[in-house]
Structure formats: structure tokens, C-alpha cells
């Protein structure tokens, strides 16, 4: 996986991780859509009245039955195996929760309820190892925001300008703090109301099972507009309290990205494509990197690799295949092309 490029472009797994990531995001989102349908199907099965269903309801029943019957004999019971969403879910009895849920609940409940806290073990461990990977690989909001980003790119190509502002990344830590304080003050986990993956999980369920949407959907819609009109991935970068928590927990992650300075040519494509506005070209990954591997995929020289280190490599200077390095300090200033790319990130 960390082989330097030599000669023709042979298969490198890390170049295709971005596609795997899209698959992961899509699967998670698809599950969040599928599970409420399965629940509705379960309730129809439990109600024993197939003949009295309306044609729409029968359609849902028949489709769900077709999907599940090769695997499941007793839908009323067996389909309980997978429930919930990324905020908190159950997979074959094994419960997992978002760290923000745990922290938020401790704040709201003014105390630690250990049976719940242990459910954060696997996500926590994964975050300690892999950093903010949730935001890149699992979060259902990411799925929507990624689609929005692509849509924004389309708009830009069509000539419509989209928001490209940069705000302070530290804002979201303030949101996190504020959310926890508000939760503690009110005695209820208010921070869950401003955390998009929790919102999406709930709203999909409400929309499918109850045919309605709520306050959360409006909030999420607002964040989408924020993304589109103000800042690319604005909510994730600047406002998401969960992202803030993941970043904090992932500060000393074991697995992180590293720029192989020997093969870097300072083309700044990595900076252009980084969805969180980080600075891979200058070794600036930090706690905010979510392992989206967009930079890895785009790098023409495959200079970006994964490494096991608990801190980022210190800035290594210009890439050895780049103009600055080869032509010395005369080219100290970054090229206009690079500047333009960075401005666009």
C-alpha cells in the first residue's frame, strides 16, 4: 500500500479507497432508508391482515417480503436484528453509539450510566485509531453533503457561483461546548437536535414510517443551503459538534496520512480536492482529516500514503519533484496556479 510509484501505473489500493468510501457511505445511507421500510413491513406482518391493506401498503409488503424472504423466515422477529441509525444502533444484539451521544447523555443526565457508555467502545476505539473517519466513511449527512458538493461543482461548471468562504474551524468546538452546556442545563440531550447524522436517522424514519417531517429536517435543509451558498462542507468544517468531538478524540490517531515528500511535485491538486479545506501539500492534515482519501486518489504521483504515527509529520518543505525544490528559493513564492487552486479549496 505504501509503495512509491515507479514506471507505469499499476494497481494501488489506496488510490481506489475513495470509491470504497463512496460505497460505504451509500450502504449506510441505504440501510437508513431500508430499515424504516422493514419496520413498517414488520408491523404489517405482526398485524395479520394482508387482505385489508391498501394497494400501496400491499406493494410495500410484497417488495419487502421479496427482499427478505430468502434470508428470513419469521420477519416479525428476525428483522429486529438490525435497528437504529448511526447515532445509536443495534446489530444482532450488539449496541453501538456515537461518542457525541454518550457525552451528550452524560451532560444531560448529570451522571454516567455505564451500560450505555460501553456501547461507545467500538466507535471510540476506531476513532482513536483512525481519527475522524466517521465523518468521511459513515456519516449519512456526508453522503448528502458529498452529493451537494458534486452538485455545486456542476453549478460552477454551468457558471453559477457557489459559496467558497472560509470560516474558523474552531467554531465547532464552541458549538460542541455550547451544546453540552445547554444539554446539561435543560436536562435533555439538546445537542442531538443540531447534529446532522442523528437528524437524518430520525427524519428518514419519520418520513417513511409516519409520512411526515419535523424540525430536524428544516434544520438539515438549512445546513444544506449553508453548504451550497456559503461554504463548501461548511457545516462539517465549522459547525458540527460531532465532528468537533471526533476531531478531539482523533487528535492522536494511530493511522494518518503522510506526504511522501520525495515523490511530491507541489501540484496542489490535493489541496484543491480536500473537502475539509486542509493543507496536505504542506503536511497539514491534523485532527480534522477524515480519511476521505480524495487527496490520495487525485495525487498524480501517488505521494500520499497512510502511515502509523500518533502525530503528524513535521512540515517537510516543498515536494522534491516540484519546481520550488528543484529550482531553489527563487521560486519561493507559490505559483499563481497553486494559489488559485488553494483559493478554490
Amino acid at each position: 500500500m505504501s509503495k512509491p510509484n515507479s514506471g507505469g501505473r499499476r494497481f494501488l489500493l489506496r488510490r481506489h479507497l475513495n470509491k470504497l468510501r463512496w460505497l460505504s457511505l451509500a450502504v449506510v445511507f441505504a440501510m437508513l432508508v431500508l430499515l424504516p421500510f422493514l419496520h413498517v413491513y414488520q408491523t404489517y406482518v405482526a398485524a395479520h391482515g394482508y387482505d385489508l391493506l391498501s394497494p400501496d401498503e400491499k406493494l410495500l409488503y410484497d417488495v419487502m417480503e421479496a427482499i427478505t424472504s430468502p434470508f428470513v423466515k419469521e420477519p416479525a422477529e428476525a428483522l429486529d436484528a438490525i435497528k437504529g441509525n448511526t447515532w445509536s444502533g443495534t446489530i444482532w444484539g450488539f449496541k453501538m453509539s456515537d461518542p457525541l451521544a454518550v457525552v451528550g447523555q452524560i451532560a444531560a443526565g448529570h451522571g454516567v450510566h455505564w451500560p450505555f457508555v460501553v456501547t461507545v467502545a467500538v466507535p471510540l476505539l476506531a476513532t482513536l485509531l483512525l481519527g475522524r473517519f466517521f465523518c468521511g466513511w459513515i456519516c449519512p449527512a456526508t453522503f448528502i453533503y458529498e452529493l451537494t458538493s458534486n452538485f455545486a461543482a456542476l453549478l460552477k461548471w454551468a457558471g453559477i457561483d457557489v459559496g467558497r468562504r472560509r470560516l474558523d474551524r474552531r467554531l465547532k468546538y464552541g458549538v460542541l461546548a455550547f451544546g453540552l452546556i445547554a444539554s446539561a442545563a435543560s436536562g435533555s440531550i439538546l445537542v442531538a437536535a443540531v447534529y446532522p447524522p442523528a437528524i437524518i436517522g430520525r427524519e428518514l424514519y419519520y418520513a417513511i414510517a409516519w409520512g411526515g417531517l419535523g424540525a430536524g429536517a428544516a434544520f438539515f435543509a438549512a445546513t444544506l443551503l449553508f453548504d451550497l451558498l456559503v461554504a463548501r462542507r461548511g457545516f462539517c468544517r465549522y459547525l458540527c459538534p460531532g465532528g468537533a468531538l471526533y476531531s478531539l478524540l482523533g487528535r492522536y490517531r494511530a493511522v494518518r496520512l503522510r506526504r511522501t515528500v520525495e515523490t511530491c511535485n507541489d501540484c496542489a491538486k490535493c489541496n484543491g480536492v480536500c473537502e475539509f479545506g486542509l493543507d496536505p501539500m504542506r503536511d497539514g492534515f491534523g485532527q480534522e482529516c477524515n480519511n476521505c482519501t480524495a487527496c490520495v486518489a487525485v495525487c498524480p504521483t501517488d505521494a500520499l500514503v497512510f502511515t502509523i504515527k500518533v502525530v503528524d509529520v513535521a512540515p517537510q518543505g516543498p515536494g522534491h519533484l516540484g519546481r520550488r525544490y528543484r529550482h531553489g528559493e527563487a521560486s519561493a513564492a507559490p505559483s499563481p496556479a497553486i494559489e488559485a487552486k488553494e483559493a478554490a479549496a
Binding site: V40, L53, W210
Partner: peptide, 16 residues
């Protein structure tokens, strides 16, 4: 904003 619509929604197949 009230999320839950008409109590006897179309989901209530008992058609009461």
C-alpha cells in the same frame, strides 16, 4: 412544528 399528522393516517390499515 407538529410532526405527526392526522392520527388516523393512511398508515392505519384498520381503516377505523
Amino acid at each position: 412544528m407538529k410532526r405527526i399528522k392526522n392520527a388516523f393516517s393512511r398508515r392505519d390499515f384498520l381503516k377505523s
